[in-house]
Each structure stands twice: as C-alpha cells, then as structure tokens.
C-alpha cells in the first residue's frame, strides 16, 4: 500500500543522479511500514538524528522523510575502526490511502522515527448494512 516512488515521470530526478551541495553522506533509512484498521504506521531508523533534525512533508500522497544527524566527532579521539558514518537520511514513499493530515503524529525515540498516519474517513472500510425489504 505504501510503495516507494520509482517511476521518473511523476518525480524530480532521482537524488542519486544529482550532486549534493554538502559532502555528508545521505542514507536511505531502513523502514517498517504496517497498516492497521485506522492507521498507517511508518518506523524509520535514523540513529544520530535529534528531534530538531527531522523534517517530514506530505504532499498529496507523497511522504518525504528527512533527518539531519546531530552526532559529532568527539574531540581528543582519533578514529581507528569504522563501520558506520554520520550522515543524513532521506526517503520518499507514495501512500496508497488518503491521509487525515490534521491528525498525523510523529515521535522520535532512540533514533527511530514513529509516524502514525490516520487514514482519512473516506479511505476507511465501511460496513454496508443490507436492508431487508
């Protein structure tokens, strides 16, 4: 239901084909997306990003998540072994359902962004009663 934007026709060019102004690496945050009856929940891993470094936009059905890492190199230390780098996070999803944008909740806990997107009233399944004549 929530798929990643892939077709080039409806999007600006893919970020990979453009050069960035800053030379910080930009990562694709690993994400979990699940759907309940009322909500679509997005969990995105962005270690190093503080609450003031998150930028979320929803335009029509295109959800953009951006995170700016606030982690800094500690003074007085020299890196001797490296398996991860500090950088920024960026990801775009197309949601298939209409979202009630006034009730979107976003929290950032332990480097994981929790995004609760309530489905709009029209998108929710409706039970249709059968009248007996």
């Amino acid at each position: 239901m929530a798929q990643e934007v892939t077709s080039a026709a409806q999007n600006p060019p893919a970020p990979a084909s453009l050069e960035r102004a800053s030379n910080r690496p930009v990562f694709v945050p690993p994400s979990d997306i699940y759907e309940t009856r009322d909500n679509i929940v997005v969990l995105a891993e962005m270690p190093g990003v503080g609450p003031d470094g998150v930028d979320i936009t929803l335009e029509r059905r295109v959800l953009t998540i951006r995170g700016r890492s606030s982690a800094v190199e500690r003074a007085g230390y020299q890196r001797v072994h490296s398996e991860y780098a500090h950088g920024d996070y960026e990801r775009v999803f197309t949601l298939s359902e209409n979202i009630d944008r006034d009730r979107i909740e976003a929290t950032l806990r332990d480097g994981v962004l929790h995004l609760v997107l309530p489905k709009a009233e029209t998108a929710r399944p409706k039970r249709i009663e059968l009248r007996t004549s």
Binding site: P47, V80, G111
Partner: peptide, 16 residues
C-alpha cells in the same frame, strides 16, 4: 572505535 590518550571510545548504532 576511536582512540584517545589512554582512552578508547566504542560507539554502536542501535536505533530503537
């Protein structure tokens, strides 16, 4: 892993 003077700093990415 980062080394300082008589100190070592080990950091790990553990989101969530």
């Amino acid at each position: 892993i980062s080394l300082g003077e008589n100190r070592v700093l080990v950091s790990a990415e553990l989101p969530g």
